[in-house]
């Protein structure tokens, strides 16, 4: 596994590009530390991301003179789009694990107005709602007699 370890900070910069910071309220996905989570989800398959990541850095140096992590922010999206086209499937699995992990992250849950906790044991309060809406339904029709 160690030989396939994903290169930081390149991977973190990629994640920040995929889910950027939400203003000052929330850091991007890389800065939030999602890299470790995503890499763990891929397990031994994480190495499959290496060619695309290496290609991304090469492309960035070619176009901007800088590694991707240091490239001008306005150009990173274009570079990532281009490399995704050159490595079909690169973003599909990456986005699946990233989205799943990011939206389970405590700071992200709080930013959405949720408590940063699992559903159990706290649960959630929920109002019964207006059962008077059924008044009209109760007088409509009847089940089919046999």
């Amino acid at each position: 596994m160690s030989q396939d370890k994903l290169p930081q900070p390149l991977f973190s910069a990629v994640l920040d590009e995929l889910i950027p910071a939400r203003g000052d309220a929330l850091a991007g996905a890389g800065a939030l530390g999602l890299g470790e989570y995503v890499e763990a989800q891929f397990g031994e398959g994480a190495g499959a991301l290496l060619p695309a990541l290496a290609g991304l850095d090469d492309l960035s140096r070619e176009r901007t003179g800088e590694a991707f992590a240091q490239a001008p922010s306005g150009q990173r999206g274009t570079l990532l789009t281009e490399i995704a086209g050159a490595f079909p499937g690169f973003l599909d699995g990456l986005l699946f694990h990233l989205y799943a992990g990011y939206y389970q992250h405590p700071q992200v849950m709080e930013a959405l107005g949720l408590e940063a906790r699992p559903p159990f044991p706290g649960g959630y309060p929920l109002a019964m709602g207006d059962l008077g809406l059924l008044d009209a339904v109760g007088t409509r029709g009847k089940y089919r007699e046999v």
């Binding site: 590009e17 995929l18 889910i19 950027p20 939400r22 999206g77 990532l80 973003l91 986005l95 699946f96 989205y99 799943a100 992990g101 990011y102 939206y103 389970q104 992200v108 849950m109 959405l112 949720l114």
Partner: peptide, 30 residues
């Protein structure tokens, strides 16, 4: 659905892009 399921559904349905428009698109789905 929950926050992560919202994101995954948004991705699979093409309603949730990555990049600069991600958060505004997510806010319209969550």
């Amino acid at each position: 659905i929950g926050p992560a399921s919202t994101a995954l559904w948004g991705m699979s349905s093409g309603r949730l892009p990555w990049g600069a428009e991600h958060h505004s698109a997510y806010d319209g789905l969550w």
